[in-house]
Design a protein around this nucleic acid. Structure first.
Lengths: 204, 204
DNA sequence: CAGATAAATTGGTCTGACCATTAACCTAAT
DNA sequence: ATTAGGTTAATGGTCAGACCAATTTATCTG
């Protein structure tokens, strides 16, 4: 007897849904049959159908709207990556590794935006910086910069790392430090900014 | 009233399970409370607990054994990757972001190890490379390089991204490509290696 | 003490019920 | 004819209970 035959219902439903999407050539935004319809068509309980749908939802492949239905959407791995990352981070107790990766991402965004910052954006950020308390400077500036790059995955992971790295002293730099950082980026001198940032990180 | 408060039960359960694992310092192979226990402790229905568990299971973080229980296991994205790859064929944007981050990490490891590779290690890797099938070259080489850096978090995140990125054509470079890559790293010419890698990534 | 048997535990699945949200429809006032 | 408001139907969200199947644990028996 083959062991492979004992597949859970929700896994078969998973397969069926996949087939359904392929057969019907569903595109992003298209609606799937209702949970009750699926249950009847696939000859399964609604709870099993839901287990499959929830799993697919966590993967980021579908979107569920209460009262409307279940819809296909363009693949957004952010949620699942976030979940997975928290597990990974949780078993990675080395603060050093977290910081190393965090610095890497921050350096990347500085380099990426080097010389790409408009005067308006620069002024706007600067005006907020001067009003912000010291302990919020780091998070604010980099959040804005990450947003500007448009890579949502990057910012997700960075936020995660930030959550896992202790709010350590080195992030408590002066306002002038972050003003200088921003200035360098605007002036297309990311190397200087990165260098300064690395110096702060290695102080620890 | 904030919209954020309307979170589904199964998502809260997800969080709670994560917290449970962190609080109890669970390791791979450790057992989670039974579905009924979780339902009672978290004040939720068993079906909601199951939805959360099935989702986590599909991600590859847990393993369930009929009659025994639910167990933590080291992340093995075999099933989710299969599901995802069938869905994402025409996906563009998020795939791009995954690749961008993946390239970033790979560039980092090349730069990090530049000029740091011993002759023994170099020869050893080379001897394996020549024997490996084309489709395994990329994963093998970078896995070894990441291991060499000693940053386990880096390699985990990278593996994660690799799982979420399609096994795309650009990874199917010749043996000579990866030999050249490795050579450059050994000779402290990471810039050349990174440049070559970037070129391959942007081909797509 | 060893093996067989029974009971308890746990995951797997289905059904039915009820609530909350949304969209569609209908009705009545303007 | 238009629109505002209410009703209805469909859909997802959640829970409780029942039963089955696999496994472990406790119990009994020789």
């Amino acid at each position: 007897m083959t062991k492979d035959t004992k597949s859970k219902v929700y896994q078969e439903v998973l397969e069926e849904i996949r087939n359904y999407i392929v057969d019907h050539q569903l595109q992003d935004g298209d609606r799937l049959p209702s949970e009750r319809e699926l249950a009847e068509q696939l000859n399964a309980g609604r709870s099993s159908v839901r287990e499959a749908l929830r799993a697919i939802e966590l993967l980021g492949l579908i979107e569920t709207r209460h009262g409307e239905g279940t819809f296909l959407r363009s693949y957004q791995p952010y949620y699942s990556v976030e979940i997975l990352s928290t597990f990974i981070l949780q078993e990675t107790r080395s603060q050093k590794e977290v910081l190393q990766l965090k610095l890497l991402l921050e350096s990347q965004v500085l380099s990426n935006l080097s010389g790409q910052i408009s005067m308006d954006f620069y002024k706007k950020l600067l005006s907020v910086i001067v009003e912000l308390p010291k302990e919020k400077l780091h998070t604010f500036l980099f959040t804005e910069l990450f947003k500007a790059t448009g890579n949502r995955l990057l910012i997700k992971i960075w936020h995660l790392l930030e959550g896992f790295s202790n709010p350590i002293s080195f992030e408590l730099q002066n306002h002038s430090f972050y003003e200088q950082l921003l200035f360098w980026v605007k002036e297309n001198k990311a190397e200087s900014a990165i260098e300064a940032l690395e110096k702060v990180y290695t102080l620890e």
